[in-house]
Nucleic acid binder design. Structure first.
Length: 636
RNA sequence: GCUGGAGUGGCUCAGCCGGUAGAGCAGAGCAUUCGUAAUGCUCAGGUCGUGGGUUCAAGUCCCAUCUCCAGCUCCA
């Protein structure tokens, strides 16, 4: 007999090699129905696993991440099985579960069209109906290789060959289909009732552009049909929030063939930009930053000296002036450094914080361009801090807290990553280690959860990255804090210490918005175009009921403008309903409906874009309310 | 850059098996002066991303190219 300790602390006894499934069945039929996998002594296993010793047992359902992943992983196997049934020549690569569902990479001569996906989905439904039991078996390496080569699965051969010597090589079988897989899986294909294939796209084998491009089919799976519906609705909703669509509808910006990746900002988009920049300047001044501006085009020699030529040339644009070679700046640091070098500094001057809203140009791959999120020219809200080595931690912490403060103002959730030394980089291992440790210390001190992003640092130093989410949960790097011992060396930067000797400062490169363009993209999607009043391109629109109130409307408009509130009046001879509809679609925060009643009483009938009709109030009262909202940057 | 898909008036979209472009919205004009998400009528507007080719005839077929979309790669 073995003793099984359940999550609630109760202990039950079962004959040895009773399967998890049988144990779960003895607990309750509802739990059995919901169970997808289990944890025995903390290790995730299949339900058909026999229990051989005294253990703790935790049943995993779709509510648990591991249970969810098991179900979706089974979804990917069903997908592969369906593909093999329909296209026996297709070769299978990898097919994992992911946050939003699952995918399978397949090598097939025939590209999968929408119609093919529908056919595959149909076959998957059959497999679900067949309710095939999943079985697991292990093979010694040579037998495993033998089996996958007999099946002609060349990618699986490669995968097995790359497994470490001591790895257990396991397979999962459902009906006629067998796949190399570590598991765990749902107990049978019948569990995957609520699934859908979403799209097909290319993906390189093993993620390297040197390898063959395979076809990746994405799908998702849930335990209940209504969860799937909900998810699909969420995707639809996200499409409505897409900043590219809203940018056009709200007349904020545009992109043209004449300048791929070079966004054009329209008057309304410029208002948001300028408000953000004003806010940025204000808060940075308060945090001890000076502002500078450096040229966009600088002599090529500078870029040789900075190391960009060796490490960043492929992303740069070049030009010639008077037969001399120049580069368009992809970063602001070398220009900023020239300003630093134009004076002498005492240790008393440090930390020196110099901010720059700098327009940079980078050659991004054409296929990577994406609305405002990834462009070829963008304005970084950059700053370079020059410090003594002792000041590193405090300054990094200062930047972290400023970043947190600003993101919170917008109500953004964010994720933090620590990116370490990349392959193509400069400097000694010791410098890199010190810099990376310093950033890690700061993160620990700030008590920020973070993930390590191996080899993703800048070529001159490691960095802390802040990622923000767009409407469908894709994340984009915005803020970054980079610690740099290299540029001060390359440019022979110095300050005079208390000892009267010259010393080498350390540099921090940092951004908070990251790029104004990308940040605006994130703002649009997060607010679904309904910006808080302080950012809204038009803050108030006055809607006279008829032309009789035209003058009253103009008077109110003028008063608003005198207070620097962005107001418009809709004086067209349209019905109020029509004017409201347009203002509503433009997501204007406040509509002031004025008719004879209001005109005579000096009042306005206020309509809030979210809450609807707020009733009549004195115009002055409305003024003080909106002023309060603007001044305090209220988002609601 | 790679794989797949798309590109028709300012916007959103229709156009079957090739026979010389349709609608709604927006715009302009006229009428209407109207109380919380679309008043009516009239008019104007495209040669179908670009360049070649096949054909008596191409938005529709073929080739090239540009841009966009999804994903991969890359990144603020």
């Amino acid at each position: 007999m073995v003793k099984i300790t359940l999550k609630d602390g109760s202990v039950k006894e079962y004959p040895k090699s009773t399967t998890v499934e049988e144990i779960v069945a003895s607990i309750g039929s509802r739990l059995l129905k919901a169970a997808l996998a289990a944890k025995i002594n903390g290790k995730v296993v299949d339900l058909f696993t026999p229990v051989m010793e005294d253990s703790s047992l935790e049943v995993l359902t779709f509510e648990d991440d591991d249970g969810k992943w098991a179900l979706r992983h089974t979804g990917s196997h069903i997908l592969a099985q369906a593909v093999k049934r329909l296209y026996p020549d297709a070769k299978l690569a990898i097919g994992p579960a992911i946050d939003t569902g699952f995918y399978y990479d397949i090598d097939s001569d025939k590209p999968f069209s929408e119609a093919d996906l529908a056919a595959i989905e149909k076959e998957m439904e059959n497999i679900v109906k067949e309710d095939l039991k999943l079985e697991r078996f292990e093979l010694p390496r040579n037998e495993a290789l033998d089996m996958v080569s007999r099946l002609g699965e060349i990618y699986k051969v490669e995968l097995i060959n790359d497994l470490p010597e001591d790895a257990v090589i396991s397979f999962y079988k459902q009906g006629e289909f067998v796949d190399l897989c570590a598991g765990p899986h749902a107990p049978s294909t019948g569990k995957v009732k609520a699934f859908k294939l979403l799209n097909a796209a290319g993906a390189y084998w093993r993620g390297s552009e040197k390898n063959k491009m395979l076809q990746r089919i994405y799908g998702t799976a849930f335990i209940k049909k209504n969860q799937l519906e909900e998810y699909l609705n969420m995707l639809e909703e996200a499409k409505r929030r897409d900043h590219r669509k809203l940018g056009k509808e709200l007349d904020l910006f545009s992109l043209h063939e004449e300048g791929p990746g070079f966004p054009f900002f329209h008057p309304k988009g410029m208002i948001i930009r300028n408000e953000l920049e004003n806010f940025w300047r204000d808060i940075h001044r308060k945090h001890g930053y000076k502002e500078i501006k450096t040229p966009i085009i600088l002599n090529e020699d500078l870029w040789h000296q900075s190391g960009h030529w060796d490490h960043y040339k492929d992303n740069m644009y070049f030009t010639t002036i008077d037969e001399k070679n120049y580069a368009v700046k992809p970063m602001n640091c070398p220009g900023g450094i020239l300003i630093y070098k134009s004076a002498m500094y005492s240790y008393r001057d440090l930390p020196l914080r110099m901010g720059e809203l700098g327009l940079v140009h980078r050659h991004e791959l054409s296929g990577a361009l994406h609305g405002l999120m990834r462009v070829r020219n963008f304005t970084q809200d950059d700053a370079h801090l020059y410090l003594t080595p002792e000041q590193i931690k405090e300054e990094v912490l200062g930047v972290i807290s400023l970043t947190d403060h600003i993101y919170k103002l917008f109500g953004f959730k964010y994720r933090v990553e620590l990116s370490t030394r990349p392959e193509n980089s400069m400097g000694s291992d010791e410098d890199w280690e010190n810099a990376t440790d310093a950033l890690r210390d700061a993160l620990e001190a700030a008590n920020l959860p973070y993930k390590i992003n191996e080899g993703d640092g800048a070529f001159y130093g490691p960095k802390i990255d802040f990622h923000l989410e767009d409407s469908i949960g894709r994340t984009w790097q915005c803020g970054t804090i980079q610690l740099d011992f290299q540029m001060p060396e390359k440019f022979d930067l110095t300050y005079v210490g208390a000892d009267g000797e010259k010393h080498r400062p350390v540099m921090i490169h940092r951004t908070i918005f990251g790029s104004i363009e990308r940040f605006i993209g994130i703002l649009i999607e997060n607010y679904a175009g309904a910006f808080p009043v302080w950012l809204a391109p038009v803050q108030v629109i006055i809607l006279p009921v008829s032309e009789k109130q035209k003058e009253y409307a103009e008077k109110l408009n003028k008063q608003l403008e005198d207070l620097s509130i962005r107001a418009e009046s809709d004086l067209r001879s349209e019905k109020v309903g029509y004017k409201i509809r347009e203002a509503q679609l433009q997501k204007i925060p406040y509509m002031l409906v004025v008719g004879d009643k209001e005109m005579e009483a000096g009042t306005v009938s206020v309509r809030d874009r979210k809450e609807g009709d707020k009733g009549i109030m004195k115009f002055e009262e409305f003024l003080s309310r909106i002023k309060y909202e603007i001044e305090n940057k209220i988002s609601k």
